[in-house]
């Protein structure tokens, strides 16, 4: 059974059908790409998958469980984590605390343990600190653990956001333009990190990206959206040779 099965997903805002007939199957441990021109509905699709928007039609199943239209909290708990196109960190909190918030539903203790600082609290916090530092180490952020998130340079903020998403121990990670605003070297480095995350954590990753080199370089399966509809689907070569995709990106004759 596939990890994520999306069938005929669609949403309309008033009279505007932003996404329609969106189908997607995601298998464990694979890297997927979602591309398309600006305004094609990529982020909208992400927002439906993570519960930010309730779809008007269609069905999303994660590990066989229907999560269509559930709240973001529920979907995160079920194992879907995401990052945002415009970085959304907890800016005033430390790098370490950002990751620990990510673990919120994985390491639990109730309010009273925290107030009395008892053994449960100390053990769990110790546990969390250790896990969080290990996770930060993967991204080379462990030296920055005590910095406020807003003090980090842009590239590291992007990494921290991925790190926070991973802290929730997801089965599926959604990355919304992870390489946006990065220079070629940083993009290259990020590609390796993403691949490493997939291999080390054994999770599925779906990413939106405009950097074609990035997408073609690491994604095994690419879906192309235009005007809210899927126009092509397949591996990098199939997609990049598809006349409709070329037309969508470069503008083509409507023959």
């Amino acid at each position: 059974m596939a990890l994520l099965e999306v069938t005929n997903l669609g949403i309309s805002f008033g009279g505007l059908q932003a996404v329609a007939g969106f189908d997607m199957t995601i298998e464990k441990g694979h890297l997927y790409g979602l591309i398309g021109p600006n305004g094609a509905g990529k982020t909208t699709a992400f927002n439906m998958l993570t519960g930010m928007y309730a779809p008007s039609e269609g069905n999303i199943r994660l590990d066989g469980v229907d999560i269509t239209g559930k709240s973001p909290e529920f979907i995160c708990k079920s194992g879907v984590a995401r990052t945002f196109q415009n970085i959304r960190l907890f800016k005033a909190m430390t790098v370490l605390d950002n990751v620990k918030v990510g673990m919120h539903n994985r390491v639990e203790y109730n309010v009273w343990h925290g107030i009395f600082r008892d053994r449960v609290f100390r053990e769990k916090e110790h546990d969390m600190n250790k896990k969080a530092m290990n996770l930060l180490k993967v991204f080379g952020l462990d030296e920055r653990a005590e910095y406020a998130a807003s003090q980090l340079p842009y590239g590291e903020q992007r990494k921290l956001e991925i790190c926070r998403a991973l802290a929730s121990d997801p089965k599926l990670l959604l990355l919304d333009e992870p390489a946006a605003g990065m220079n070629p070297n940083e993009t290259q480095e990020l590609m390796e990190t993403v691949r490493k995350v997939r291999d080390d954590f054994g999770i599925a990753i779906l990413l939106i990206e405009h950097d074609m080199k990035f997408v073609m370089g690491i994604c095994e399966d690419i879906t192309v959206l235009e005007y809210g509809r899927i126009i092509a689907h397949g591996d990098a070569e199939t997609v990049s040779n598809d006349p409709r995709v070329i037309a969508a990106y470069l503008g083509g004759d409507d023959d």
Binding site: M52, P72, F84, V111, I115
Partner: peptide
């Protein structure tokens, strides 16, 4: 103590970014 615990982190996270806080569960 509340502030320095799991619940306190959640509270400050909500202050910093509600949308990200929801997406973090």
């Amino acid at each position: 103590n509340l502030k320095n615990s799991r619940a306190g982190r959640a509270i400050t996270a909500i202050r910093d970014d509600e949308i990200a806080a929801r997406a973090t569960g």
